[in-house]
Nucleic acid binder design. Structure first.
Lengths: 214, 214, 214, 214
DNA sequence: TATGAATGAGTATTCATTCAT
DNA sequence: TATGAATGAATACTCATTCAT
């Protein structure tokens, strides 16, 4: 099945000294840059080392192979995006349900846009991204953040949604936003699209609350 | 930007004799099999030749490189899927708008499922899939098919949709169906999800016809 | 236990065309030369390729790794030595038991001397020599040759030897000859040593025939 | 000629303080363990340091390179074996010639058995063992021990043996015992073999004393 | 035209050794 | 003195591609 290789995606050695941490960080940054500029096929261990200004030996001191470097890039990206989402949601804590929803969607879109190059490569070229724990858990984490936000508004009732409806809504919203950020349709008004998406989502949720079945 | 290599994705020589056509076909089938079984990284020209029962020299007789083989696989896949969609829609020609819609969605889902392994590899591992003309044009072609079908029903009014709305609806539906087919959520009732998706789509289209603005 | 790695010591592809056979042969000869000149640690795949006047790719076309090259060298060496022993014994077919014995011993010594450099490296540096089938079976084959020769003389009676005695005699003779050939004691008269060795062996065999127990 | 590299096999710094001695000892023990478990190819300086619980820097404080560690292991092994031989012979001081001989042989066999793993790796994998002074001198030392023992018995006459005979006897006995200890023939009665070996040797020596020529 | 032997640049990875702290 | 992070030359091996037969 699709050549599911099992790669060792963990650190070989966790850096403790400050110097070592700097080295590992340089490697991750270099990997990210190369992924963006050259794609996954362009990422070679020696190139990473060179770009990081570090010897190839140091790279292998901390990473068991290049897959682990990519995994580290992905993990860091997820962490950054989730942190940004969290702080974005924090800034919108007192909003009512509808503007909160809009805020959530817009934030996710903006944050995805900011990382669209790296996201594109990781999601569409790296065969094992979904084996990276942080990536595998991102959807759930995003959903958790949304729930935490929603629970602070009065209209928080979508607990009534079936698991299927929940999946559909989040999957569609997420996919639509990601497509928009990573492969923006040329010549269209993105803001209008996001606007409409928001409306649809809210409408959908209200319906679910009020007892759906169109 | 993402290492946008320019590959030669075309045939080197268009096969005319029956024997040559058989050779080319064997190469494409072998490539597809290997992509499914080993992933894109597992596809090597020599392996393709061996699997196809053809000499490596013959492979290079027709293809300028391995990217062109993958492109041929993708092109053939798109053609097969579109043909299947077309014949599925043909079988549903006399339906009313709503069941026609449902049929379109279900057909797309089923056809995607049937090819989910190859689709997954092509979409999530091959860096240049979207440079393959057939792939780049597939969304438009699918939409054209939908339109052709819709134009035969009375309720055909979504010409009034803005290009943004159109994009949003097709993008969301497509993305949702693809996710469902390629990465089915474990433990959920897929039919129910598709059902709900269909309802929402129809509802949105009706709203658009009736003058939206929730 | 001594890091018993399991290496693939077989050919990857058996050469059929004459050109391919020449390539494989060049590789084996080059490996043997390098083993003699630089020792096992000095044998690197690229060096073998260069010395053989062949590209590194061709080396890997036929051998799965450098261990297999060394195994091929060892196999060929054993074959050559056994063939030489056989033809040496053939030349001594009509001899009586005692001179036949002497001939057998002297032949083995000479043949070992002729290959002493390669033997030294293979036996004392290559961790997996005894996993090479030809090497593992050499002792038995040498013994078989000795028996075939002995069976043509009247004095052929050592069938009465216990398996332990047999082992001891062959092991001691073999080891002594090998030491003599590979690490000749400086300043001693080798011929005298071989002479004495022969006498002792014959004497022991006679004793065994006559009902030993000193 | 067999890639005769010249290695620096000596200590870089002779440890004087107790702590330093402990460090050096830990390094030697670790090296010995790794040699036994992983073979010579598995011995790497970093692994030795780790196993010894010492930093790689400290390893290089005392040893100029990994060859010197292996040489130290070999030296220590020889010392241990010779010491054990000596004490074994001491325990047999009052024996007559024949049982003394038997004792000498059995002791050597047992002591070789006890170290067979390390011996195997050192003798059959390490290219430079015979450049280690202790190893090069071991045969002579063993012989000296034998002589010292023999000189205390009445039957001590083999001074009459030619240097060639002496070489042959010791070489054969030694080689046979080593083979027995390192590569025991499966399914044979080892004690019986040693018994017979002893008898032969004694008989041989008596003959030499009495004026040989079978 | 078809074959498959041959090529060799390129890549991942190891490991002895150094040296700043 | 002890540490262990860092080094980088060296090595095994792959695989897209060519070309003589």
């Amino acid at each position: 099945m699709s050549g599911k290789q099992v790669y060792d995606l963990n650190y070989k050695k966790v850096p403790k000294q400050a110097r070592a941490k700097a080295t590992v960080n340089a490697i991750i940054q270099a990997s990210a840059q190369i992924l963006v500029e050259e794609g996954y096929a362009g990422l070679t261990t020696n190139r990473v080392a060179e770009r990081a200004g570090v010897s190839i030996g140091s790279v292998y001191e901390y990473f068991p192979g290049k897959e682990a470097m990519v995994a580290a890039v992905a993990t860091q990206l997820v962490e950054v995006m989730l942190a940004e989402m969290q702080s974005a949601l924090l800034r919108a804590e007192r909003l009512a349900f509808e503007p909160a929803m809009r805020h959530w969607i817009e934030s996710l879109y903006k944050i995805s846009c900011a990382q669209h190059q790296l996201l594109k490569v990781l999601l569409f070229q790296v065969p094992f991204v979904h084996q990276v724990p942080a990536v595998a858990g991102m959807r759930a984490e995003l959903f958790r953040l949304a729930l935490v936000g929603a629970s602070k508004t009065r209209e928080y009732h979508f607990i009534h949604l079936s698991r299927e409806s929940l999946y559909l809504i989040t999957s569609m919203t997420g996919a639509a936003l990601l497509q928009l950020a990573l492969m923006p349709p040329p010549g269209l008004d993105i803001d209008a699209i996001i606007d409409e998406l928001t409306q649809k989502m809210i409408q959908w949720l209200y319906q679910a609350r009020d007892g759906d079945k169109h």
